[in-house]
Simulated assay, not measured.
Amino acid sequence: MTPISTTKPQLEAVIFDWAGTMVDFGSFAPTQIFVDAFAQAYGFNISLEEARRPMGLGKWQHIEALGQDPDVGPRWITQFGRPLSQDDVRHIYEAFIPLQVERVGAHSDLIPGALSLVQDLRKQGLKIGSTTGYPREVMNRLMALTADKGYLPDCTICADDLAAGSRPGPWMALACVQDLHIGAVSHCVKVDDTVPGIAEGLNAGMWTVGLALSGSPAGWTLAEFENADEDERRTVRERVTPMFEAAGAHFVIDTVADLPAVLIAIEERLAMGLRP
């Protein structure tokens, strides 16, 4: 049963990330395709773990960050005799996009509890926003698939929609505020499975919630999560939670299914005059 708050509601919107937060439990679609895009474009190998490190950034920026990674960057220079250039980034990005569009459907299942959560939030009068590191071309495909499964946010802002840029800047989250006609950024909650996504919410002046067991830092498949015992879950929480706390997240929970109790806590803080 969803907890009920006794305070006067002040929250207006919850803004969710996509992969690792609402769909694609372990955020495998983008990470595996970065591995494949580097290999296809240049015959260059990166590991899944390396591909995960910049998760949360826009995909162009993600490729740039991999070129500066302390492990990936030197290997690139050894193989090609020069650092990763903007032309290289463009070539890898152009390999990435069709692969992502082609395969995003295989990772479009909603995370358990996500759909019922959104339905409950809408019954409470909250608006549903979303931001993503995916480009619009990928999101058009993904949103069509999730709409058939019952999930379509009131607005979705993509990494390539805004001239100002994407995460960790506040611009995508603030675009949601504008599109949803929100009265105060402190009445919004940003939920994300990545540190750049938490920074996005903080920079926009919102409450932020990190996800410890779904998403990229945990790196679990849904089956691994469901089969894990409490000791295994605790081990991952103890590894991931400090990352979000250091980034400034106001709350850290396991998955979006645990969000209702956090929203009550935020409502209580707002009622006391507290702000993010």
Rank of each mutant, 00 (worst) to 15 (best):
T2P: 13
T6P: 00
Q10I: 05
W18Y: 03
T21S: 05
M22T: 14
V23P: 11
V23T: 12
V35K: 05
D36G: 10
A37Y: 01
Q40Y: 06
F44T: 06
I46L: 11
S47R: 07
L48K: 13
E50I: 12
E50S: 13
E50D: 11
A51S: 14
A51P: 01
P54R: 14
M55P: 04
M55I: 01
G58L: 04
W60H: 12
Q61I: 03
Q61R: 12
E64S: 09
L66Q: 02
L66E: 09
P70D: 07
F80W: 11
G81K: 12
R82Y: 10
R82A: 14
P83Q: 11
D87Q: 10
V89Q: 05
R90V: 11
H91A: 15
I92P: 09
Y93F: 14
F96S: 03
L99S: 15
V104L: 03
V104S: 02
H107M: 02
H107Q: 08
H107N: 09
I111H: 01
G113R: 01
S116A: 14
L117Q: 13
V118R: 02
V118G: 00
V118E: 05
Q119M: 15
L121A: 13
R122C: 02
R122Q: 15
K123W: 09
P135A: 06
M139F: 10
N140H: 11
A144S: 09
T146W: 07
T146H: 01
K149P: 01
G150V: 02
G150Q: 00
L152V: 12
D154Q: 00
C155A: 01
I157N: 03
I157Q: 05
C158T: 05
D161H: 13
D161I: 03
A163T: 14
R167M: 07
G169S: 14
P170H: 07
M172P: 00
A173M: 01
L174I: 05
H181T: 14
H181R: 14
I182F: 06
H187R: 15
C188W: 01
K190V: 08
D192N: 10
V195N: 09
P196T: 08
I198M: 05
G201Q: 00
G201V: 13
N203M: 12
A204L: 02
M206C: 02
M206Q: 06
T208M: 12
G210V: 01
L211R: 10
A212P: 00
L213T: 08
G215R: 04
P217D: 06
L222Q: 13
L222W: 08
E224P: 00
E226D: 10
E226N: 10
D229C: 03
E230Y: 08
D231V: 12
T235C: 10
T235E: 15
E238V: 04
P242E: 08
F244M: 11
F244I: 11
F244P: 00
A246L: 00
A247L: 05
G248S: 08
A249V: 10
A249M: 04
V252C: 15
V252M: 08
V256N: 06
I266N: 07
R269Q: 13
R269P: 06
L270I: 11
A271S: 15
L274K: 15
